[in-house]
Amino acid sequence: MNKKHLAAYVAVAALFGVMGGIVAINKKEPAPVTTTMADTGGAAHSAVDKFYAQSLNDLKGQPQALAQWKGKPLLVNFWATWCTPCVQEMPELSHLADEEAGRQGEKRFNVIGIGIDSPTNLSEFAEKLKIAYPLYVGGMGGTELSRELGNKQGGLPFTVLIGADGQVIKTYLGKLKFDELRADLAQLKG
């Protein structure tokens, strides 16, 4: 290969590098997929009943009944330490939970996280980031639990907003848009 060919290859490679950089800078993050489930006329969704019938270990290895969250709106976030969008949204989700806990008067909703990961990874991550809401170990069974609540694709992060009446109000697949989430939470009846 002579110097002319090498220079041409370098120029083409540089051009593709610049074009790739421009595309990356202008790339918009996809909006989360949001859905609502059919109204059941005031009865709890059967998937929510199954959810509340579960017990999951907390990060200390102690079993916790999810039924303890019944009767008040609940934001359930399915996540994993290896999921970049999950990790990116957790500090803001933690701030939201902390804000709600510090509210004057009665809390409007609770936030919990269900990790699709090993207990060790979840504990180390939560300790490092100082997450302000309860985290539970879902393991691989957590994926099935999220599917039952509407996560047909099985993707992460997946967040479910459950009303005090056991109705699934909305689901969010992908990184949360907090302005949309805050608007949804502001409309809660609880």
Score class of each variant (00 low, 15 high):
Met1Leu: 12
Met1Arg: 05
Asn2Gln: 03
Lys3Gly: 04
Ala7Ser: 01
Ala8Asn: 02
Tyr9Gln: 11
Tyr9Phe: 11
Val10Ala: 14
Val10Glu: 03
Ala11Cys: 02
Leu15Val: 12
Phe16Asn: 04
Val18Asp: 01
Val18Cys: 04
Val18Ile: 13
Val18Glu: 03
Gly20Ile: 03
Gly21Asn: 03
Gly21Phe: 01
Val23Met: 04
Val23Ile: 07
Ala24Ile: 01
Ala24Lys: 06
Asn26Phe: 13
Lys27Thr: 10
Lys27Pro: 05
Glu29Lys: 12
Ala31Asn: 14
Thr35His: 02
Thr35Cys: 01
Thr36Tyr: 01
Thr36Ile: 07
Ala38Pro: 00
Gly41Lys: 04
His45Trp: 00
Ser46Ala: 09
Ser46His: 00
Asp49Cys: 02
Lys50Ser: 10
Tyr52Asn: 05
Gln54His: 12
Leu56Trp: 05
Asn57Val: 02
Asp58Ala: 07
Asp58Gly: 09
Pro63Cys: 11
Ala65Ile: 00
Leu66Arg: 13
Ala67Tyr: 14
Gln68Met: 08
Trp69Pro: 06
Trp69Val: 09
Gly71Asn: 11
Lys72Glu: 13
Lys72Cys: 10
Lys72Met: 10
Pro73Ala: 13
Leu75Gly: 03
Val76Pro: 04
Phe78Pro: 12
Ala80Thr: 09
Thr81Gln: 11
Val87Ser: 06
Gln88Ala: 15
Met90Lys: 12
Pro91Phe: 15
Leu93Pro: 08
His95Cys: 07
His95Asp: 14
Leu96Gln: 08
Ala97Glu: 03
Asp98Gly: 04
Glu99Trp: 13
Glu99Pro: 05
Gly102Tyr: 02
Gly102Gln: 14
Gly102Ala: 14
Arg103Glu: 12
Arg103Pro: 00
Gly105Phe: 06
Glu106Trp: 07
Gly113Tyr: 08
Ile114Cys: 12
Gly115Ala: 15
Gly115Met: 07
Asp117His: 05
Thr120Val: 15
Ala126Asn: 13
Leu129Thr: 13
Leu129Ile: 10
Ile131His: 03
Ala132Gln: 09
Pro134Asp: 09
Tyr136Cys: 06
Gly139Thr: 08
Gly141Asn: 15
Gly142Glu: 08
Gly142Phe: 05
Thr143Ile: 15
Thr143Lys: 15
Glu148His: 07
Leu149Ile: 02
Asn151Met: 12
Gln153Cys: 04
Gly155Ser: 13
Leu156Lys: 09
Pro157Arg: 09
Thr159Phe: 03
Thr159Asn: 07
Ile162Glu: 02
Asp165Tyr: 00
Gly166Lys: 00
Gln167His: 00
Lys175Tyr: 12
Leu176Thr: 11
Leu176Trp: 03
Glu180Thr: 14
Arg182Trp: 08
Asp184Gln: 08
Ala186Met: 11
Gln187Asp: 15
Leu188Asp: 13
Gly190Glu: 13
